[in-house]
Design a protein around this nucleic acid. Sequence first.
DNA 1: GTCTAACCGAGACGGTACGTCCTGTCTTAGT
DNA 2: ACTAAGACAGGACGTACCGTCTCGGTTAGAC
Lengths: 203, 203, 203, 203
Amino acid sequence: MATAPTVAAAPSRGRPRSEHRSAAVLAATLAEIGDRGISGLTIEAVALRAGVSKVTVYRRWPDRIALVLAALESLPELAVPDTGDLVDDLRELRRHLLDVVDRSNLAEVLPALLAERRRSDHGPAIRRYVERRSQAYVEVVERARARGELVTGLPTELVVLMLSSPLALSVMNRDAPLTDEEWTTVVRVVLDGLARGDGRSRP
Amino acid sequence: MATAPTVAAAPSRGRPRSEHRSAAVLAATLAEIGDRGISGLTIEAVALRAGVSKVTVYRRWPDRIALVLAALESLPELAVPDTGDLVDDLRELRRHLLDVVDRSNLAEVLPALLAERRRSDHGPAIRRYVERRSQAYVEVVERARARGELVTGLPTELVVLMLSSPLALSVMNRDAPLTDEEWTTVVRVVLDGLARGDGRSRP
Amino acid sequence: MATAPTVAAAPSRGRPRSEHRSAAVLAATLAEIGDRGISGLTIEAVALRAGVSKVTVYRRWPDRIALVLAALESLPELAVPDTGDLVDDLRELRRHLLDVVDRSNLAEVLPALLAERRRSDHGPAIRRYVERRSQAYVEVVERARARGELVTGLPTELVVLMLSSPLALSVMNRDAPLTDEEWTTVVRVVLDGLARGDGRSRP
Amino acid sequence: MATAPTVAAAPSRGRPRSEHRSAAVLAATLAEIGDRGISGLTIEAVALRAGVSKVTVYRRWPDRIALVLAALESLPELAVPDTGDLVDDLRELRRHLLDVVDRSNLAEVLPALLAERRRSDHGPAIRRYVERRSQAYVEVVERARARGELVTGLPTELVVLMLSSPLALSVMNRDAPLTDEEWTTVVRVVLDGLARGDGRSRP
DNA sequence: GTCTAACCGAGACGGTACGTCCTGTCTTAGT
DNA sequence: ACTAAGACAGGACGTACCGTCTCGGTTAGAC
């Protein structure tokens, strides 16, 4: 989704940018990330691999980060799951995440982006990218609340954080992400805790 | 703490390395990380700032990552808290983490290290560094179990993950880490969930 | 003179080239040569300055050198002087040369063209351009011979070389070209030498 | 001659520049000028040919012109001839010039340098280089005057210009430089003219 | 009055070189 | 054996022009 490099565009002056090349560059970017990792990513190598000149890359994306974000956004987006059951919805989100991790080295790219967020001009763009991903969690949780499946006074943001951060961190920090069994356990503990009374039950 | 750059040392022949310079380099490294961030960190700038030649840096630490790890390890380590109460212990760990975040750009450095972990030869070293930090959590949780304060069949690793990942992720991903109140809520929900029956209580 | 860019033209089909634009490009070329010199001359800058697209320039002149030659040829040409006196004729040629030097940076352009002559495909064209300039000398000298004002067995080419090269070289090599007085002296010495017997008078 | 790239140097701090490499670069420069000409001269190609990194070239010579000048100055200098006869001395200078022309594409390089003289910061350096070459003429002429072989009231500079410019211009402008016979004729005409009375003999 | 070929601007494009920067290694002289 | 200074090969950076190419849109002569 969202491959469009620049915003909108004037009503087409001069030779139009080749979509074919844009796609080739994004594909090459993903491939390079796979081969050399984020820190080993070179515009030069991307251009070479895409069979494109450096300028053609720079024309579209001003720098490495913008390029990486565009490449990630070129991956197919998951439709927000709606199985009617919160845990099943969450499991679907987990499955999709692990999919993307496999396909795009997200386990390396994600922390790299988070690191960049503090410095670069792309802070907002990175924030938006991450946000968009967690948006699915927000919707799934709100739907569960609407169904009465989840009853809690906590802000959705906190609930999402509790449900998603163990998996996210395990992806970035552990040698392997949480297994299905581990993950199920974690989610159930959190949901049980919420059911018990929003953490306000203790003295 | 732990300034010792290399493993041990031969029985010392010739002029010994100046400890003063080692310290200057590590300080300069932290300062540079503060100014330019991890990705903008160059050995050259560090050497210049420390008033030291590049070779003097390379002799001690083989590359950027090793240098960064050494710099982080030069920060004062927290003694594992032991207040007799799990939540108080955890709160102390939180306080210390936020301290380090303030003092060393950890919010940027940590994800950068995690990203590097997948590729570089320093994977193990980085893993060890992160492990060492979470070790405090492990000890605190195990003590709580021994005291009977925490009763659960879950492996300590999972418990620690649930208790620490929301804060860790909020540090890396949010504009500001969890407030004390938010954090307290999260911890209590998790502990309630564990008390309720390890996530196995549901059908 | 000679603004006609290409040879002749097919019997004209389609929209004709705008003469207005051709002139604008040549003017812009002279201006750019004045501002940045021959070596700093870029087609892009010329096109920009002329308010014309690059293609419009390339359509008319295949490359930099052709463009420069065309620009020089667009300058007004001197009618070959014919005062009835050789020295006066030569003085008129000198005046005209210094004029062009002032108006077109010839002091820089001329050596640049000579340098290019050895390599580029435009060798012949450059040769022709320079030849055309010296043609005036040839005519003036031959007229003097016809009048009996100049009696010598030397080939006209050599006579012209002796009469013109000191001024030409002074234009290219000295900070200022020969003054009128210096120039007069030089010319008279050469003419005296010729009158003395063509350099064959010595043992 | 004078291969020394920079002025003098502090009392040697750090690793000294490799003379071997300096020489290799200058040789490569001359070779490249021979192959591709002045306008086709590329620092990158020179570095490649010399088996040296680009920075090594830039460290010594700030730009193309400085490099070319250094390369030319690395060629063996002629000892000023002193045969006791002016024409023989001049003939020796001619021989040497044609030698250098053959060995270093001077026919192309010289006009290129003259063109550059007007613009670049190297104006003075180029002027100095050319001056140094013509210095031999000055000495030869002054010696002839001292011997009484040449009697004239003209400033030496003008005499030198008359004696040298036909050959110089023929090198730059003609397809072949003046033959020995042509050259001899030219020189004798000039000397005869000077003997006749410094160009002041005419009304 | 349409055709329609050549013009024109804008700007994309592959390519080459630019001059700079940093890396990690090396070579000096000096401590 | 350490140190500071700095040379060095290598490799990527981001930029500038080159000369070519596609676009959409004129413009004038031929039909």
